[in-house]
Design a protein around this nucleic acid. Sequence first.
DNA 1: TCATATAATGAAAATAAGTTTCATAGTTTT
DNA 2: AAAACTATGAAACTTATTTTCATTATATGA
Lengths: 282, 282
Amino acid sequence: MKGLLVRIDDYVQNAGEAEKQLISRLQRNPESVLRKTIKEIAKETYTSPATIVRLCKKLGCKGYKDFQSTLAYEVALFRESRDIAFQKITQKDTVEDIIYKVTKKNIESLETTRKLLEPKTITSCVKLLETSRTVSLFGLGTSLLVARDLYLKLLRADVICNLCDDWHAQFLTARNLRTGDVAIVISYSGLTEEMLQCAKEAKANGAKVIAITRAVESKLAAEADYVLPVAATELIHRSGAMSSRISQLNVVDVLFTAYVNRNYEFCMNQFGRTHIQKDGGT
Amino acid sequence: MKGLLVRIDDYVQNAGEAEKQLISRLQRNPESVLRKTIKEIAKETYTSPATIVRLCKKLGCKGYKDFQSTLAYEVALFRESRDIAFQKITQKDTVEDIIYKVTKKNIESLETTRKLLEPKTITSCVKLLETSRTVSLFGLGTSLLVARDLYLKLLRADVICNLCDDWHAQFLTARNLRTGDVAIVISYSGLTEEMLQCAKEAKANGAKVIAITRAVESKLAAEADYVLPVAATELIHRSGAMSSRISQLNVVDVLFTAYVNRNYEFCMNQFGRTHIQKDGGT
DNA sequence: TCATATAATGAAAATAAGTTTCATAGTTTT
DNA sequence: AAAACTATGAAACTTATTTTCATTATATGA
């Protein structure tokens, strides 16, 4: 079920005069509604309790009380997510502050990335992975680390894949692609010239291009067949620590998990074969 | 003001018999209280509406209604943060579920890692980085990606550092360490034999060892001079997607940001010199 | 021990809140 | 222009919450 405030917004167009008054009041300050009785709201908006109850029902609630508690829930979540809003790190910050702020920023970035991801796009990408002849990965700098992470995962699932460390080799890989291949190009900014070239080359050769990049101002996004967006975060600090790679890894997790879930039997069998026995992990 | 549930818990000791009944009911399932009337709760607990209202007032609310909405707010926040833990990914999950659950799991892992990090340890590690002759990084598999991330950061800050891709070369590096050097060993499980060997070798040669590893069952933690713990998460899925590397990156962010903050002028100057101009990022 | 003060509690009255019904006025359809 | 429909608020009705007050249990001190 959609959020209540969204439903209110959707309903405006069908609303009568009194209802519009009400909705305007609700939207102006949803939070204060929680502390008011139905009569008070009726008085404020020059409407009647009956109209209010009717509106609540139209919005899918059982009545005014139900409406209030649904709204309370929503407002609580909203407030929580605003809280997170970024506080810059300054030189005055203690180490304790830094731990808190850096982590918060990374969490915020994950939350935002989650909201950007569209299930349909993920599904399309998973299908592409299933049917592709080969999967080639592209990335430089920090994004190369993300590419490597995905590479390790795909390897375990026995997806035929390819990743070169340096750009020249990556470009050659792009040159050799053909119809039926998939290129996954990773670049946070979406502006790295080398990556754009790889994407164009891949496309020109008939391969499908999946980009893992920020949504805004990304030339790469414009080139790609499918875009898996990550939150456009600033630097955490002028230090250059950035949340983008964490969001990118989250996208990789989602994509790969979705892939495994659709190819469960096969993948589980593969994981059994590729599990490194000697220790518990890395 | 403390949370309502905390206040309830504080009050138990002063509570009368009927109130104890009530409190026990409230604590057992706070959420369901939101959907019940005062009479229903009274009946359930063999008490009376009067007693309930009195309790609400003792807890700092204006009455039962006020109590309910305060509780609603709290439950909403609580649910949002607790929800996370128990949800395993199953084959029935839709892609939408996967996006949600994977992200939540990663966020949970960051939250937990934040709680584990001790400011004092970070401070000690930063001091070590400042005074060390060289910093060598150790990691394999996924943890090698984390090591590379830290390597890229240290490079930019002009910290003399060292990272080899393969284990043999890493081991040789450990052999060559001496007093005044720092080894940062990254291993999620803390059980990887190769990493243990590197840590032991480094220590034997007089170098200080910082471990980025999970706190529990980690042999590496026992070897290290300083432990930067990450949350001990399970796999997100049998797929092998794991939150640990994201938590490890978060630790790297914290450590590096703290380092930069203590060496601000110098680092900013360096960043100016090492900034790659041609594009906005990777 | 027993009277008395004190605190805890529930029944029931009083108040307040929310919901439904119904009449009316305005609007659209035929 | 009549009929049907829609939106609305007043008022009746139902339900929920709060307060009052009498009762019971418990502790205190003579």
